[in-house]
């Protein structure tokens, strides 16, 4: 199973500059053209399956608006 991740975009900090959208290696991000942030920008969001939690969007984000999570598969351990 491929590594799965997800992101949360802080609506207060995101300014819709699209740098994360351009940088995303999986090409699964886009601006949310249906909504505006309190500052009046279209925020970035995940639009498709396939996020790996690589955090490249967070690395290019000038406003530290993105929190990245990655799933860690738990090994089933036979412990006493």
């Amino acid at each position: 199973m491929p590594i799965r991740g997800r992101i949360e975009v802080n609506q207060l900090h995101c300014k819709g500059c699209e740098l994360c959208v351009m940088a995303c290696p999986q090409d699964v991000m886009a601006l949310d053209m249906e909504h505006l942030t309190p500052k009046g920008y279209h925020p970035a969001q995940l639009v498709a399956e396939g996020c790996t939690g690589c955090a490249i969007c967070a690395i290019v984000c000038p406003d530290a608006a993105i929190t990245v999570y990655r799933e860690t598969p738990q090994k089933t351990r036979a412990t006493a």
Binding site: G5, N10, L12, H13, K15, G16, C17, E18, L19, K39, Y41, G53, C54, A55, A58, I59, P62, D63, A64, A65, I66, T67, V68, Y69, R70, E71, T72
Partner: peptide, 21 residues
Amino acid sequence: EKVVYQRPESLTDTVTHYCPG
């Protein structure tokens, strides 16, 4: 789930006045 990246503690929650990008 583990957090791979989050806003650093050394930044406040203030929204910057910098232009987008």
